[in-house]
C-alpha cells in the first residue's frame, strides 16, 4: 500500500511539473489530467474512494475535456509554442519558487513536529458516510454552492440567447 502511494505521488508530482513546463498547451493539459488521475489514486489508497471517483468524473472527465475543447478550437500552432517559450524565462520562476518553498517548509515542519502521524489508521469512507456529513452539518455549503450555480446558469442562458432581431 505504501509503495502504491509513493508511486502515485511521484507520478502526480512529475506530471504536475511537466504540466507547468511544457510549451504545447494540449500536452500541458494532458499532463495535468495524468496528475488528476494520480491524485485520485492517492485518495483511493487513503480510504476515500468516493472522492477519488468524483475527482476523475468532474475534474479529469468533465472540466479538463472543456479545457481541451477550447484549446483545440483555438488551434494553437508553432507560433504559440514559440511565444510560450519566450514567456518561460528563468526570471519567471522566482515568484512561484518562493511561494512553493514556503509551502514545502510548512509541510516539512508539520512532518517534523509529528502532528500528522497522530492521525491514526486509515478508515474507508463509504459514499453513504460522505453524504450524511455533506447533507447534515455541511448543508449550508451545498445551499450556497447551488445559489452560486444558479446565477451562472441564468447568465450562460442570457449570453447564449438568440436575439429576435438577428434571427431572420
Amino acid at each position: 500500500m505504501t509503495g502504491a502511494f509513493y508511486l502515485a505521488a511521484l507520478v502526480a508530482a512529475v506530471s504536475t511539473g511537466l504540466a507547468i513546463t511544457s510549451l504545447n498547451a494540449v500536452h500541458a493539459l494532458l499532463y495535468l489530467i495524468v496528475s488528476f488521475l494520480a491524485v485520485a489514486v492517492v485518495f483511493f489508497i487513503f480510504g476515500a474512494p468516493f472522492i477519488a471517483m468524483l475527482e476523475i468524473i468532474i475534474y479529469a472527465g468533465a472540466i479538463m475535456v472543456l479545457f481541451v475543447f477550447v484549446v483545440m478550437m483555438l488551434n494553437l500552432g508553432r507560433r504559440a509554442i514559440e511565444q510560450e517559450a519566450g514567456w518561460l524565462t528563468p526570471r519567471m520562476w522566482i515568484g512561484p519558487s518562493i511561494l512553493s518553498a514556503t509551502l514545502l517548509g510548512e509541510l516539512l515542519y508539520l512532518f517534523g513536529s509529528g502532528i500528522l502521524s497522530q492521525a491514526g489508521g486509515i478508515t474507508v469512507q463509504t459514499p453513504k458516510q460522505v453524504s450524511v456529513v455533506l447533507l447534515g452539518p455541511y448543508l449550508i455549503g451545498i445551499e450556497l454552492a447551488s445559489m452560486l450555480l444558479l446565477p451562472g446558469l441564468v447568465g450562460a442562458y442570457h449570453l447564449g440567447r438568440r436575439l429576435n432581431s438577428e434571427d431572420a
Binding site: V26, F50, M53, I56, I57, A60, A62
Partner: peptide, 24 residues
Amino acid sequence: LNIGLLFFLAMSSLSAYSVVLAGW
C-alpha cells in the same frame, strides 16, 4: 468496489479523450 457505478461513469467520461485527442 463499493463505488462500482461511479467507477463506470468515471471511465466512460475518460473515454471521451480518445476521440478528442485523436481528432486533435
